[in-house]
């Protein structure tokens, strides 16, 4: 599949502070790519370098086949983390102006602005000034302004921050629509649920360094699976199963205890159940817990911090 964004070993330093430290990534056409990391990890700086708003100290960037994103700016839509619009302009005026900066003619830009506002329920606000809109509506207008020129690549920096749950759902739907239309989307976030629901692949960075790149399933595979078994029997025989790494009791209610097993992903659940039957362990309740992306995120970031802390 064609690679539309490739970043190779970029470094960026502000004075004594290292913002990006040898980051690399590749995003294929049509992917929804999550750019994840804690606050201060270097996501925004990396995005600015990607967009050629900043220059890297070292390393190279290739966007839509060119070295400078500015030369293909008309094919890119960008939503920055810190948002704002011209407060005295109308919603339609702002979208039209920004679309014109992306290369559209005045008439076409206005037509698309109206169509987008109508499609996402803001037709009545089209002629109202931004300062007269609610914060949520203004944020919607800003998201729409990144779409008006029908870009091939969308780069959204923390697009969900500040949105209420309803608007978060609307934005998720927008992203799904874009994916369905074959667009490539890169978005940064530190809210893992959005990434888990939307991303084909993710890149996790911390302290400016790449600590994981792959699919959400690949990320989850980094953590053990958890099995919870409620029983009044002795579970000691189960701890000897090949993939089981650790067993501990979570709670006790009379004779009944709840046990948690940490196991490698190679563990066969059928084999586990069969072992219970074989060792006459009565199963009152059984649950298998997949690790969430949030768990992966926390684990990997802490591990990276520990390494960084040791190193520092």
């Amino acid at each position: 599949m064609e690679t539309v964004v490739r970043i190779a070993d970029i470094h960026k330093r502000f004075g004594d502070q290292v913002a990006v430290d040898g980051l690399s990534l590749a995003v294929a056409r049509g992917e929804v790519f999550g750019f994840l990391g804690p606050n201060g990890a270097g996501k925004t700086t990396s995005i600015r370098i990607l967009l050629d708003i900043m220059s890297p100290d070292r390393g190279s960037v290739d966007v839509l086949g060119v070295r400078s994103a500015l030369s293909v700016a008309h094919r890119i839509g960008y939503l920055p983390e810190e948002r704002g619009l011209y407060r005295n302009m109308t919603a339609e005026g702002v979208i039209t102006y920004l679309a014109r900066l992306k290369g559209l003619g005045a008439r076409e830009a206005r037509r698309r602005a109206r169509a987008l506002l109508e499609r996402y329920g803001l037709a009545a606000a089209a002629r109202r000034r931004i300062r007269q809109l609610s914060k949520g509506m203004a944020q919607k207008v800003q998201v729409l302004s990144t779409l008006a020129h029908d870009p091939d690549l969308l780069i959204l920096d923390e697009p969900f921050s500040g949105l209420d749950p309803v608007n978060q759902q609307v934005l998720e739907q927008v992203l799904r629509d874009l994916k369905a239309a074959g667009k490539t989307v890169i978005f940064s976030t530190h809210v893992m649920q959005h990434a888990e629901r939307l991303c084909d692949r993710i890149l996790l960075i911390a302290r400016g360094r790449n600590i994981f790149e792959g699919s959400v399933d690949d990320a989850k595979a980094r953590l053990d699976i958890r099995l919870r078994l409620r029983t009044e029997g002795d579970v000691a025989p189960l701890s000897g199963l090949p993939a089981i790494k650790r067993v501990f009791r979570r709670s006790r209610d009379g004779d009944i205890c709840e046990w948690e097993f940490r196991a490698e992903r190679s563990l066969s659940v059928e084999r586990f159940i069969a072992a219970c039957v074989e060792h006459r362990i009565p199963i009152r309740h059984f649950t298998m817990l997949e690790p969430s992306l949030h768990d992966v995120f926390v684990r990997l970031v802490r591990a990276n911090d520990a390494v960084g802390g040791e190193g520092s």
């Binding site: 600015r48 967009l51 708003i53 994103a69 500015l70 700016a73 890119i76 960008y78 939503l79 920055p80 810190e82 920004l98 900066l101 992306k102 302004s145 990144t146």
Partner: peptide, 8 residues
């Protein structure tokens, strides 16, 4: 920031 992602 939006402006300078479109023009220098």
């Amino acid at each position: 920031e939006v402006l300078i992602s479109s023009i220098t």
